[in-house]
Structure formats: C-alpha cells, structure tokens
Computed example of a mutant assay.
Amino acid sequence: MVYNWLNIEQFCLLCDERCDPEHSLCGACEADLPWLGPQCMVCALPLPAAGLICGQCLKRPPAFDQVVAPWRFDFPIDSLINRFKHQSRWPLGRLLAELLARHLKHLFNEDLPRPSALLPVPLASKRLRQRGFNQARMLADWLSPALRIPVRNELLQRTMDTPAQQQLDAAGRRRNLRQAFALPDKKQLHDQHLAIIDDVLTTGATAEALARLLKRAGAARVDIYCLARTPKPGD
C-alpha cells in the first residue's frame, strides 16, 4: 500500500487536539488568544475604547507612525514567545509569524499602507552569541514570503552591547539605547516606507530609537510590526 502523505494528521500546538492540516493551531485555541482589542491608534497601547490616541502619544508623539500587534502580552502568548525566544522552540515562533502575517494581510486589505521593506531589530553581538539566533530576524524571514515584502538586514546595525532592556524602567531603556544603533548606508532610505520587526513592544524605547534614526536619514514612514503589546502596569 502506498502511504498518502497528504493525510498526515495535524495536532494543535496548544491543546494537542486535531486541527486543520494547513494550520498549527485549532480554531478554539486561536479564538482564545489574548487578541488586542481597543488600542491607541499610534502605539497600540490597550485602551478602553477604539479610535483614540493615548495620552503619552498626544503629549510626546513618537518617531514611528503606527504599531501593529495582534495580541496583548498575556497568557498563552507570553509563554509561546518566551519559549520561542529563550528555549529555541522555533516551531512556536513560526506559528506566531504565520498568524501575524495573516493579521497584516487583513489590515493591508483594509487600507493599511504596505511598507517597501522589513527591518528586523538587530541583536547585540553578545546576546546573539548567547542565544544563537536573532528572534526578530527569524520573524522577518518568515513574514517576508507570506507578505511578499523583502527583508533588508543590512540597513540597521547594532553598534553597542547594552544591558538587557527587561531589567530597566522606561527612562532607563531610553538611556540604554543612546548611540546603540547605526545606519551603514543612509542613501537607500530617502522617502522609503519601512517596517521594523520585533517580538514584543513594552515601553517602545527600541522602536522609538530606531524610528528616529530612520526618519533622520530620510525615511518617509516607519511602522512597527510585533507579536504582542504590553499594557500599562496594573492594567
């Protein structure tokens, strides 16, 4: 008997129930993810109502134009991201990238402007040696063919090994990133629409530093595409 490879069963990565062979997550688990509801129209901070801009963005408009994130950084998304990022569980990262690509395609159909290139956040060399991979670069490489948008890894460089951002408050994160990034070739950026790829947006310090650098080099628009957005402490 000839084995039919097309009949291989697919099991959900979260609940182990059978699911659509084309997906790694069953419909019930996907619906139960902490989808980001009403949010700031600029930084995607969770808000009580839709169509608003948060107080921080009104008071101090960021250098980036818009953050796109499907989920709140809450269970089980936080666990999936941490297992991908810190335990090298790459299938989980690929699953999240596929869901993010689907989310972005929907938004593109709803008139979200398409960028000309994806720019993963560069990882400090010490952290890259410790981890063995750059999670933002992997996400960008998975997003690229699905969205048909090229990845430009060479446009951003990390010039300093800075302390981990997770250990710092918002002001400390901003200080930590001063002079941390560089642009080897600014001529390629004039009037470009670019999207920075990262895993989680917390205070937005990294996104702000990179967007400001790109805008100063002539970029017309800089968006941030990430997997999850953290709410304010206590929310």
Rank of each mutant, 00 (worst) to 15 (best):
118 L>C: 10
133 F>I: 14
108 F>W: 14
119 L>N: 03
105 K>P: 00
112 L>R: 09
120 P>R: 00
132 G>N: 07
133 F>M: 11
129 R>S: 13
111 D>E: 15
114 R>Y: 12
140 A>L: 06
136 A>L: 09
109 N>L: 13
132 G>P: 01
136 A>N: 00
112 L>W: 06
145 P>S: 10
144 S>Q: 03
136 A>R: 02
146 A>W: 02
120 P>K: 03
139 L>M: 14
128 L>K: 13
122 P>M: 04
117 A>Y: 04
117 A>H: 10
125 S>L: 08
148 R>D: 14
134 N>E: 06
132 G>R: 05
144 S>E: 11
126 K>L: 09
144 S>H: 10
111 D>R: 15
108 F>S: 07
129 R>H: 15
133 F>V: 11
130 Q>F: 05
104 L>K: 01
117 A>L: 09
109 N>E: 14
131 R>V: 14
121 V>Q: 04
145 P>M: 05
118 L>K: 00
138 M>V: 14
139 L>F: 10
131 R>W: 07
126 K>F: 05
125 S>D: 07
129 R>L: 10
127 R>N: 15
128 L>Y: 12
106 H>G: 08
116 S>D: 11
132 G>I: 14
104 L>V: 12
117 A>P: 02
135 Q>C: 09
104 L>G: 03
137 R>C: 05
106 H>S: 10
149 I>R: 02
131 R>N: 13
143 L>T: 00
108 F>K: 03
110 E>K: 15
116 S>Q: 15
139 L>P: 02
128 L>F: 12
118 L>T: 00
105 K>E: 12
116 S>Y: 08
106 H>N: 10
104 L>S: 06
135 Q>R: 04
141 D>M: 03
146 A>K: 13
107 L>F: 13
146 A>T: 00
131 R>Y: 06
139 L>T: 06
113 P>A: 08
149 I>K: 01
112 L>Y: 07
148 R>C: 13
142 W>A: 04
107 L>W: 14
103 H>T: 11
105 K>S: 12
131 R>Q: 12
138 M>K: 03
108 F>G: 07
144 S>R: 01
133 F>R: 04
103 H>G: 04
133 F>G: 01
132 G>K: 11
